[in-house]
Nucleic acid binder design. Structure first.
Lengths: 215, 215
DNA sequence: CTTCACCTTGACCATACGGTCAGGAAACGA
DNA sequence: TCGTTTCCTGACCGTATGGTCAAGGTGAAG
């Protein structure tokens, strides 16, 4: 570690703090605006207002609207990859897939904006993160398919098609974020309560795990 | 008599035809452009080019961009409502829900653009079709919940939460349209073949029907 | 042929947007 | 205190977009 880095760690420094805090505020505002208006409908002015900064200041930290958008999308992808670890080191589908559903449902509740931005990005043909789909996501998917296939071979679940199981997991869990507005409307216009979220998670886990013959 | 003349005689009238044909072409182009670029990213010029008409002509048939968009969204909603009839008059969940999955999966394949437009609309808070959600969709949902509850009471399936079953059906079937690009990327960049679509439908039906204890 | 309703479209306009820039303020090290 | 780097921001610019309009074309009815 360099001397500079040591000093930097001991004394965070006003400068560093300013940059970090402003970038954080901008990314948070951008995530919300991109989610609610889409890339084309979002404006730098609106993001700036929501972040409490002049528009010109945004361009100081993020050169272009695309740069800012790319950062937001990457952020979500990393959160999802982290959640994917729930899958690993599980003795069987009940624990592994159960934990994965729990993790993805929690993210749908805590990061609904990010989920929508991702969905929008993919729906528009993934112009920004196509390389991630072809590398990281593809590798991750193949790995989990192998795990699921192993569970099938070990007789721990029915011989279903692992790929379509993954699609069902993604679709179902992300639906609670992406279509949260529709769900809220069908819930008398009120957001799901803690109890209702627990019920949702339990329902999804029950149907999926029974559907693959794991329970 | 020529074929043209025969067709011409069958046609109700040139005027009506022109309007119908142009509106059809505009709506078809608009559905695609709105799906691929979002409402904010779509431009009337691009829709016009794709429909093969001057931009000013679009505004002759559809006063504003919002009007055109609204028509596109309503069109999809009606298609989905039609598919919902698969649910009715079924003796049990295997036939009713099985047919509904078939119908929704077919729509995901034949109308991927419309599905994306709908998803985008809901994700952005349903600014245009909120009233549909609160009336038609809510009524339809309550009706199907009653049907599912009846099947449960009759012992034809496990006592799962009907509401979350519906969400799972919507999420899973529409995923094949909305996230079609991601699925294609994970399929070596190639669209699903007929065989793969049959496999997808079978997998979804198998997992769902088993998940609710109907098979 | 004339009339009239309907259709077509190039040219145009006001606005809003992404992005730039110059000049100044604030923080920091020496 | 002084010099240097980083940060801040009002004013500005070129462009693209949704929408308008007036003039002209077209076909069917009488």
């Amino acid at each position: 570690m360099s001397v500079d880095a040591q000093i930097s760690r001991l004394k965070p420094g006003r400068r560093t703090d300013i940059r970090r805090e402003n970038e954080r505020a901008i990314l948070e505002a951008a995530e919300k605006v991109f989610a609610e208006a889409g890339f084309g409908g979002a404006t730098m002015q609106l993001i700036a207002d929501m972040a409490g900064l002049p528009k010109a200041n945004l361009h100081y930290y993020f050169a272009t609207k695309e740069d800012l958008y790319r950062r937001v999308v990457q952020q979500i992808f990393e959160i999802w990859l982290d959640a994917a670890s729930s899958f690993d080191n599980a003795p069987g589908p009940v624990e592994g897939i159960g934990a994965y559903i729990d993790a993805k449902m929690d993210i749908s509740r805590t990061h609904p904006h990010g989920s929508k931005v991702w969905a929008s990005e993919v729906m528009h043909g993934a112009p920004v993160i196509q390389d991630y789909l072809e590398t990281t996501l593809r590798d991750w998917t193949e790995g989990r398919i192998a795990v699921i296939q192993r569970w099938i071979n070990e007789g721990k679940m029915q011989p279903i098609n692992p790929r379509h199981l993954l699609y069902m997991l993604w679709a179902t869990t992300q639906h609670y974020a992406d279509f949260g507005h529709q769900i809220q409307t069908l819930n008398d216009g009120k957001p799901l309560t803690d109890k209702q979220w627990r019920e949702a998670k339990a329902s999804v886990k029950d149907m999926v795990l029974r559907g693959i013959g794991a329970i």
